[in-house]
Computed example of a mutant assay.
Amino acid sequence: MDLTAARIDEINRELGTLEGHAESRSGLVEAVVGVCHELRSLSIDPRVYRERDVEALAGDITEAMRAACAEVDRKAFAVGRVLLPDGADSATAALAYDPLLHELEKLIGKGPNESRW
Score class of each variant (00 low, 15 high):
19 E>Y: 02
17 T>I: 03
114 E>I: 07
91 A>T: 14
23 E>Q: 12
89 D>V: 06
97 Y>N: 14
27 G>F: 00
47 R>M: 07
66 R>K: 15
2 D>Y: 01
109 G>E: 01
116 R>C: 08
3 L>P: 04
26 S>F: 01
55 E>P: 10
7 R>D: 11
104 L>C: 05
91 A>F: 07
54 V>Q: 13
4 T>F: 11
70 A>P: 14
30 E>K: 15
26 S>N: 02
21 H>G: 04
113 N>G: 11
67 A>P: 08
33 V>E: 08
37 H>D: 14
35 V>M: 07
29 V>N: 04
100 L>D: 07
102 H>S: 10
112 P>K: 12
94 A>M: 05
97 Y>D: 15
10 E>G: 09
101 L>K: 13
84 L>W: 03
91 A>Q: 15
103 E>G: 04
111 G>M: 05
68 A>M: 04
39 L>N: 07
66 R>N: 15
71 E>K: 05
71 E>F: 02
6 A>I: 06
5 A>Q: 10
33 V>S: 13
36 C>L: 14
10 E>V: 06
92 T>F: 00
72 V>I: 06
88 A>W: 01
98 D>L: 05
46 P>V: 02
1 M>Y: 10
82 V>Q: 13
81 R>Q: 15
68 A>C: 08
111 G>F: 13
44 I>P: 07
70 A>Q: 15
86 D>L: 11
71 E>R: 08
32 V>N: 11
59 G>T: 02
98 D>K: 05
115 S>C: 06
65 M>G: 04
81 R>A: 08
93 A>V: 10
15 L>P: 05
3 L>I: 08
107 L>A: 13
57 L>C: 03
64 A>R: 10
116 R>I: 14
26 S>H: 04
110 K>N: 12
114 E>C: 05
41 S>L: 05
72 V>K: 07
74 R>M: 05
4 T>R: 09
67 A>C: 09
44 I>C: 03
17 T>P: 01
93 A>S: 12
36 C>T: 14
103 E>D: 10
98 D>S: 10
106 K>Q: 15
86 D>R: 14
115 S>W: 02
41 S>W: 07
37 H>Q: 14
36 C>E: 15
62 T>V: 08
106 K>Y: 05
13 R>I: 01
19 E>V: 05
112 P>T: 10
67 A>E: 14
14 E>V: 05
11 I>W: 00
63 E>T: 09
4 T>G: 08
81 R>C: 04
76 A>W: 07
20 G>K: 06
17 T>A: 10
40 R>L: 09
62 T>P: 00
41 S>R: 14
11 I>C: 01
70 A>D: 15
103 E>S: 10
10 E>A: 11
58 A>M: 07
96 A>L: 06
9 D>H: 15
11 I>G: 04
64 A>L: 12
55 E>G: 11
32 V>C: 08
50 R>P: 00
24 S>Q: 04
46 P>A: 06
16 G>R: 00
77 F>L: 03
48 V>N: 11
78 A>Y: 00
46 P>K: 06
55 E>F: 06
56 A>P: 00
68 A>G: 07
113 N>D: 14
58 A>N: 09
59 G>H: 09
